[in-house]
Amino acid sequence: MKSKKIIFILFLLVAILQLLAPTKMIYDQENTLKNGKALKFLTEPIDPNDPFRGKYIRMNYDINSFNTKDTIWERKQEIYVYLNDSLGFATLKTVSKTKLEIDNNYVKAEVSWYDNYNNKLRFNLPFDRFYMEESKAKPAEDLVRINNRRDSLKTNITFAMVYLNDDKFVLENVFINDVSIKYLVGK
């Protein structure tokens, strides 16, 4: 009888833990959306597919490098990218190997490489995938690609709306000329 109680209590603990994990993930995302700083990141197109997580638009941002004379950077090294808000759009303030106490408009990124010739540090921002319903991902990607061509950049602005809150981020949506990509492909 006592072993049945122990098994039942263990079962309840495991069930509670399984509910807490996704609840914490949802809470973190909602908290970032509610309390985070919204910044727009200008994009460039790329199209991939993830067999485990589904179809997505690969987001490539125009903020992907930083001029620096510091040549000691390791590939895949975690760095802190600090951002300014310039009329709602993200601009690069500075990059650091350690967390600075200047503000909370930052994101942890990963070093791609250091270009010694141009003294540029190249990095990848972590919010580079915007997942969509499978039937809409390809048309959305095509739309983003068409609107990011050099000749259409004069009339069309494609950007990702990202919320930042300390080291958390949420890629909320992708827009073309302030219209949601979900709306544009859902027409």
Score class of each variant (00 low, 15 high):
residue 21 A to N: 14
residue 136 K to V: 00
residue 185 V to Y: 07
residue 103 D to K: 03
residue 155 T to F: 15
residue 170 V to M: 00
residue 132 M to W: 05
residue 17 L to H: 08
residue 119 N to W: 00
residue 36 G to P: 02
residue 45 P to Y: 10
residue 46 I to H: 14
residue 12 L to R: 06
residue 18 Q to R: 14
residue 169 F to S: 12
residue 156 N to W: 08
residue 72 I to W: 00
residue 54 G to D: 13
residue 179 V to F: 03
residue 139 P to M: 01
residue 96 S to W: 07
residue 97 K to Q: 12
residue 52 F to C: 02
residue 24 K to L: 13
residue 71 T to F: 04
residue 82 Y to E: 05
residue 28 D to L: 13
residue 124 N to V: 07
residue 78 E to W: 06
residue 81 V to Q: 02
residue 163 Y to L: 06
residue 28 D to T: 11
residue 163 Y to T: 05
residue 69 K to I: 04
residue 112 S to M: 09
residue 153 L to G: 08
residue 166 D to M: 02
residue 60 N to S: 15
residue 72 I to E: 06
residue 44 E to N: 13
residue 166 D to Q: 08
residue 29 Q to G: 03
residue 27 Y to G: 07
residue 19 L to P: 04
residue 20 L to I: 15
residue 58 R to W: 10
residue 148 N to T: 15
residue 20 L to Y: 14
residue 137 A to I: 02
residue 111 V to T: 09
residue 60 N to Q: 15
residue 42 L to I: 05
residue 133 E to P: 00
residue 106 Y to S: 08
residue 104 N to P: 01
residue 94 T to Y: 05
residue 163 Y to G: 03
residue 24 K to S: 11
residue 54 G to Q: 13
residue 72 I to V: 04
residue 43 T to N: 13
residue 53 R to F: 14
residue 41 F to Y: 08
residue 72 I to Q: 08
residue 146 I to G: 02
residue 20 L to P: 08
residue 145 R to I: 04
residue 99 K to L: 15
residue 155 T to M: 14
residue 75 R to L: 09
residue 94 T to D: 07
residue 170 V to E: 01
residue 8 F to E: 08
residue 5 K to V: 07
residue 168 K to M: 07
residue 167 D to C: 02
residue 91 T to A: 11
residue 161 M to N: 13
residue 55 K to L: 08
residue 152 S to N: 15
residue 122 R to I: 06
residue 144 V to K: 12
residue 6 I to L: 13
residue 115 D to M: 03
residue 144 V to A: 11
residue 24 K to F: 15
residue 50 D to M: 07
residue 61 Y to N: 10
residue 86 S to P: 05
residue 98 T to S: 15
residue 107 V to R: 00
residue 144 V to S: 06
residue 127 F to W: 10
residue 187 K to C: 06
residue 40 K to P: 00
residue 70 D to E: 13
residue 84 N to I: 06
residue 85 D to G: 06
residue 69 K to Y: 11
residue 77 Q to H: 02
residue 57 I to G: 01
residue 47 D to C: 01
residue 157 I to S: 11
residue 11 F to E: 00
residue 55 K to N: 12
residue 112 S to A: 14
residue 128 D to K: 10
residue 85 D to A: 08
residue 108 K to D: 05
residue 85 D to M: 04
residue 130 F to K: 06
residue 134 E to L: 04
residue 111 V to Q: 03
residue 23 T to M: 12
residue 100 L to H: 02
residue 27 Y to K: 10
residue 97 K to D: 03
